[in-house]
Amino acid sequence: MLLGTLIYGFVNSAILALLAMGFNLTFGISGVANFAYGAVYIFSGFSAWIFLNTLGFPYVVAVLAAILLAGLMGLAIYFGVILRIKGMPLSEVMATFGLGLAIMELFRYFDFVGFRYTLPVFFDGSLSIGDVYIDYQRIIIGLIAVGLTAALYLFTNHTRTGLALRAIAQDERSALTFGIDPDLVGGLSMAIGCALAAIAAVVILPLGTIAVEGGYEVLINALAVCIVGGLGSTVGILVASVLIGYSQTFTANYLEPHWMMLVSLIAIAIVLVVKPSGLFSHQKELEERI
């Protein structure tokens, strides 16, 4: 029981981290809170499904195409919508939120509802560790979460583009003086954020069905993790995912399964009282610059 809880808790944490990563990355770099994030997630799920089943692409191509499409969508959202209202965070939130709603409900309108909307797993089968059975897909989720985190870390700390992105995140004006175009970086951050949502979608969705409600769910989970961890902080996201992920799994296994839903609420409540800006946020400090 304990081993199982530990393993499944890890997978759960990995899922949360994957869900929050894209939202957090976009915000961390360009300060744009992409409230269409959940919509991008299910959009990617459905587009992968369409590539696979309607257009008959091979699996790998379909998945890559879905990720690419999400990235393009990120660019489109940035240059089509956000750029026109740049610098007005509240307008950005409202516009992306409205856009997300429109996208998600459009899927509902076109009747993308039901059990047939599932994505296949990467590999079938499962593994046993001790007396715990775990399917390959969940293992892959764990691996991809760890891999992506490492890749993002290396990217932002050791590549030119990554460092440029960080420069923007720290100070837009000084970045400009180094000849970095903030609009391009903003668009890029949005594209990467959306592509990350798509990656999360294609690895996580095989565990269930693709449903419009899932989009709202994803947005809520991503927001919850970011609120607890502290917006814009990668370490914060990881810690918050592990914290919430394990608490959820422990609650489900040792208390009552349906109390699992309360864990994030309680985590948010505690964090808001103890450290409202999130466990690892530097937001406050940066804001005070006058």
Partner: peptide, 27 residues
């Protein structure tokens, strides 16, 4: 607690709270 923070935190928390409270009732 959120009032100490900038705009989008308020947006995020207000979006999340009612949905979570309805689950609190459900659970």
């Amino acid at each position: 607690p959120v009032l100490r923070l900038r705009g989008i935190y308020f947006a995020m928390v207000t979006l999340v709270l009612p949905l979570m409270l309805s689950r609190l009732v459900e659970a």
